Simulated scan of single mutants.
Amino acid sequence: MRAVTWHGRRDVRVETVPDPIIKEPTDAVVRITTTGLCGSDLHLYEVLTPFMTPGDILGHEPMGQVEETGPEVRNLSPGDRVVVPFQIACGHCWMCREGLPTQCETTQVVEHGMGAELFGYTELYGAVPGAQAEYLRVPQAQYGPIKVPEGPPDDRFLYLSDVLPTAWQAVEYAAVPPDGTVAVLGLGPIGGMACRIAALRGAGRVIGVDLVPERLRRARADGVEVFDLRDAGSREDLVEAVRATTGGRGPDAVIDAVGTEAHGSPVGRAAQRATELLPRDWAAKLTSKAGVDRLAALRLAIALVRRGGTVSISGVYGGMADPLPLLTMFDKQIQVRMGQANVRRWADDILPLLTDEDPLGVDAFATHRMPLDEAARAYEMFQRKEDGAIKVLMRP
């Protein structure tokens, strides 16, 4: 089959690799009809390279048709149309029953001290072959895949794999009070969808912050009050501008949808790039013990949120030695919630919204649709934010 493989920093290729097969009785093989390119994939493209191996298959946003199932997968049949969550979870352990499939005790990557395995996402999460491919082996298929109806185009349901539950959890964790104000930092796929969900769920005001013109225009068209980072003389100026519109207090909640590659963090960027000069094993050890993030977005969230408010983090961070302003966080009594989205926990809440009325605008959410064979160009375009690329879908 053809698949998108990793070969180094900013080096992805579409190659022919062996077809996946059933290995365990709880496996399924899915023929991919559409797969997404996620901002988290760019972390592998740029930052988390010490934990990658040349030839790793990328991608974690798949949907398609079931081709084959193992004998213990009784809920699926060949031909079923499914969306596959990005994490691999069993559905029956204590963590899964508590609504935390990202912490699944069956698939936790214990040797690295990490949570549940993820598709296409470094050795820290099991080095499981990913979904930017013609076919995908799905472990724990008795629980993970979500059956969806035939008929509507893939765009209607694909985002159940990651974008929708991640944005939904970000809003849930933000705990925006009725008619309250939430600020969303980063208006890419997750941040943009979080704005829509927050408004749908009753936020009185939604404020968006970014510096990419296309993202700002799209959010403004959604009714979001936008602030352009390029117009702010400093972080302090932006904080004061937002506070001035919120009675001097700041937003009730702030969602950080940016993560480790935030603009405006030159020291963090330099530290991340320094690992490229080391042998892979050394770089991995150094990153796992003393890795740093670009913290501009998180620091902005902490500065923006009102006293007693909530910071919800959906952007991916990976640092082990990040200096955080704990005195400010403690003094302001900030509540912080974060983590990978628990897809199956939120799927039943989201599915009723994927109707013909399309209140979340999923049908037109993608900005680009490309053949899988053009994956290298898709990654480059998305990473450079060229041609208005906000959400890219690929079809094998």
Rank of each mutant, 00 (worst) to 15 (best):
G188K: 13
R220D: 13
R217W: 05
R294T: 10
M329C: 11
V29M: 05
E374Q: 15
G39Y: 00
R81S: 07
G204E: 09
F119T: 05
V392Q: 08
P279W: 09
V239W: 01
C104L: 13
N75W: 01
A219F: 04
L185P: 11
L304K: 10
R9Y: 07
V209G: 06
T355L: 03
R243V: 08
A376T: 15
Y45D: 06
A219Q: 10
Q103M: 14
G151R: 12
D27I: 02
C93Q: 13
A241Q: 14
V267W: 11
L327R: 15
P85W: 11
M1F: 00
H43F: 08
C38I: 03
G223Y: 01
R215Q: 14
S40Q: 00
L277D: 10
A283L: 09
T328V: 15
F86K: 06
V392M: 09
I32W: 06
P153H: 09
R97N: 10
D222G: 05
D358C: 04
M320L: 09
E374A: 15
E225K: 03
L164R: 02
E111G: 00
V226H: 03
T53E: 14
D11C: 08
A219S: 13
V82R: 11
E172L: 05
P129Q: 10
D80T: 13
E46N: 11
E225P: 00
G223V: 05
A378N: 08
Q108L: 07
R306Y: 10
S314M: 06
R235F: 00
G291I: 05
L304F: 07
D331I: 12
P165C: 01
R280G: 02
V336Q: 10
E117F: 12
G233S: 12
S314H: 05
G36E: 02
L286V: 09
Y143H: 14
P279R: 05
V292A: 07
D331Q: 14
E111V: 08
G247H: 08
M381T: 15
G291D: 03
K147P: 00
Q140R: 12
G115M: 05
I313A: 11
Y173E: 14
D80S: 10
V182M: 12
Q383T: 13
T166D: 03
I88Y: 09
R31W: 04
A203R: 04
R74Y: 00
F227Y: 14
V171I: 10
G39P: 01
P213Q: 05
I255G: 12
T245K: 11
A232W: 06
V226L: 04
I207H: 01
I302P: 07
P152F: 03
G291Y: 06
P139K: 11
R307W: 13
H60N: 06
P352C: 13
A198F: 07
L324F: 14
G191T: 05
I21R: 14
V267T: 07
